[in-house]
Design a protein around this nucleic acid. Sequence first.
DNA 1: GAAAGATGGTCAAGCAGCTTGACCATATGT
DNA 2: ACATATGGTCAAGCTGCTTGACCATCTTTC
Lengths: 142, 142
Amino acid sequence: MALSATLLAVAGELTQRIHEGVVARGFEGVRPAHGFAFARLAPDGATATDLAVHLGVTKQAASQLVDEIVRKGYAERRPHPGDARARLIVLTERGWACTRAAEEAAAEVVRGWGDVLGEGEVRALLGQLARIAPYGPIRPAW
Amino acid sequence: MALSATLLAVAGELTQRIHEGVVARGFEGVRPAHGFAFARLAPDGATATDLAVHLGVTKQAASQLVDEIVRKGYAERRPHPGDARARLIVLTERGWACTRAAEEAAAEVVRGWGDVLGEGEVRALLGQLARIAPYGPIRPAW
DNA sequence: GAAAGATGGTCAAGCAGCTTGACCATATGT
DNA sequence: ACATATGGTCAAGCTGCTTGACCATCTTTC
């Protein structure tokens, strides 16, 4: 039953390495939770409430997180087309750059796995994980 | 490159499900971080400083965590044989029961994976993860 | 074997990120 | 039109972590 522990250890390591890679590429003051937010904002933006659901926190917490990434220049609030109450949070160019940096860092770690396992097994790993992955909100904390 | 995101989603889900399972088995007031501590204490106990290294936090934080699990009856502090400064933190019977509950909950989740993937692929998954798992401290937070 | 430094642990204060609760502005349903 | 639901903010408080200072004991060095 070491599967759980091993999986969590790998996940913790991955998170850590991505974070280090992002910092090494010059993006300071950004935490892993921001990465999860960026992933939700990336396609076309989202509302603060969307983010709250996605991250599994209250909308107040999501709003504060938005404050922070706006203040740091990673995103901006725009009026929401079609709902005057809401605001559409979208990534700035810097936000996109940071997202790309995270993807590069992640790819680097996965490349390391490829060196150990071989490409075929990495693909197999992805396939297996994809079939057991949940649909609901991403939970970046425990 | 969805591997990273998928892995983290699975890990988040696993953590969540284990936590729910532990609560459902009657252990209240225990957080996932405690589970990581229990895993370190389980074999023969450990010192607070050992725990701090294992969890990747300061020794003060580890000491507070120990305070908490002692207060809640999951562990106790004993004099350390051979070092009068140190204390050996060991699980109580309740601590062991909680650890077993977590293992049961984890096994339940893994069983669900077996239903989807088949036993062979679950074993393959374990093998692959074991080969890329890190050695250092477990990082229960991101 | 005594002095000097390293190590295990605690106390205290502060901070960051989250929560709950109250509230306003706008949408939506009847 | 009115009542209710929803997106968002403000404010206060809590929890878990940090840094900094300190004591007790172990270990190293002379």
